[in-house]
Amino acid sequence: MIVGSIAGIGAGLAAIGAGIGIGQIGGKAMEGMARQPEAASKIQTAMLIAAAFVEAVALFGVVVAFLGTGNVG
């Protein structure tokens, strides 16, 4: 139970980092699109790819939390 909670906290911390990262990516992409609306589609693709890479970090945290929670099912 305690291991599970700590793993949960870890996952939450990973999510904070990823949240900041994705926020940065999204914000900068918006800025870029506002500055160059004609490049919006390219920026969108690049943004999604970068966001996916950052998101993977948070997901690793979640999966490690799953590993730590033991056999619940």
Binding site: F66, L67, T69, N71, V72
Partner: peptide, 10 residues
């Protein structure tokens, strides 16, 4: 084995 802990990630 660590992977065997949770059926979700097995």
């Amino acid at each position: 084995m660590l992977l065997a802990l949770n059926p979700l990630v097995k």
